[in-house]
Amino acid sequence: MPIVLHRIDDRLIHGQVVVGWGRPSGVGFIALVDDTVAASEWEQELYRMGVPPEMTLYFADVEAAARQHALWESDPRPGIVLAADIDTMRRLAALVAIAEVNVGGIHHAPGRTQRLRYVFLSQDEERSLRALADTGVRISAQDVPGGKTVELEELL
């Protein structure tokens, strides 16, 4: 079963991911790729509380995620690979083949401009998304399964 979603979402584990995408896709695991979380047992425990018992939650830094990506792709259960920021997903995409990336939530912060209700980007982040797209990755924004898909060119 292929990974059903490679998602950038700064809230990481939350309702839209676990319920919104997880339920209709029958997701059996989420791989949370984040260098900081992977190094913190406390952070991991925090996010474990956010997933139902039938869903497995893996933690990995980018290097470990690259090593385990093929295993996740061959898992019989549908899965989601989740990163909190563009840079993390871009670093992962440099190490493994990722066909599509979903921008699911990058929220307001100083220096960012609103692009969608749930997407705010700085100029550096825009350049980073374009650079990722230039490597052949299809990038679109969509917060929930029933929401409108906004392709990168429309997003920027």
Partner: peptide
């Protein structure tokens, strides 16, 4: 909070720390 695993509960757990 509404859900046990939503961003609200996660934020609350951080404050509880």
């Amino acid at each position: 909070t509404d859900l046990p695993g939503g961003s609200a509960a996660t934020a609350a757990r951080r404050v509880m720390r």
